[in-house]
Design a protein around this nucleic acid. Sequence first.
DNA 1: ATCCAGGATGTAT
DNA 2: ATACATCATGGA
Length: 304
Amino acid sequence: MERGTIPLSDLDGSFDLQSTVESGQSYLWDRPDGEMYTTTAAHGGSAWYETVVSPIPDVAAQHEVLRVRQVDGELQWESTTDAVPLLTHLLRLDDDLNAIEAETPADPLLDRAFEQYAGMRLVRDPVFPCLISFICSAQMRVSRIHGMQRRLAREYGNEIEFDSRTYHAFPTPTQLAARTEDELREQSLGYRAPYVQRTAEMVAEGEADPHGALGLDYEDARDHLSQFMGVGNKVADCVLLFSLGFTQPVPLDTWIQTAIADYYPDCDQGGYVSTSRAIREQFGGQYAGYAQTYIFHYLRSGGN
DNA sequence: ATCCAGGATGTAT
DNA sequence: ATACATCATGGA
């Protein structure tokens, strides 16, 4: 086992691990204390978080177990490998949060959200687990989406021993593609089961590559991801924002649509594409996805 | 019991 | 392009 620390004073802007990991961006982390999504305080102490990182090009060549907690202005980590580049990538520690906040137009709602969850950053999940997570997210609550991903890992993922414990990696495309729709329905995926199976098959067979969105302009990238079964504009936006490094997508979910109706009614243009453009402009363009994620977490956590 | 959750798909217009 | 019904599951 390797261990280390990352001093947070070196970062551009602050960092808050709990709000970053428990804000419904990523469904791939867990808390060994069993308190995931249960603590309402924004400053929730120094809990450990853990995940099995799926392979990421140029970042992780293979599955790696990773544990991290935030204590006294630093991140303490334990891992199967050197976790500094992993954490920097996964939790976007290289973002200049001050500059991002400065690029975001001030308004009462955004000011409150940025203040209450100061230090929350976007995540960069491995793309296949992210894609499956958000296919599962359709008409589903945050805690259940998280539970579904843990169940998929436990049922179908590789076992990895680390620190005398057994961890479960998220299943690979090949592993998920090998399951039948009925098997996945037995895992309580409901009507998402055929979407997950078919999308996994598309990736496993090389029919399409989610990484193909990387070189494209934003709206072309969204269209590229929409070819996967079970992926519409909203889920595509989530994958671009929470995995592929795009910061301008504003996923139009039920919470953001309510926020638009209540706070930005002029941005309601009827359809997804035009409303997305309007609210993206409202939030300052380039980092509009950051603003969206702050508002989502703020409203969903009881703010109003 | 009825409603709702980080929506997408297929079909009809 | 847009409107509509339909799709599982479980917690409030």
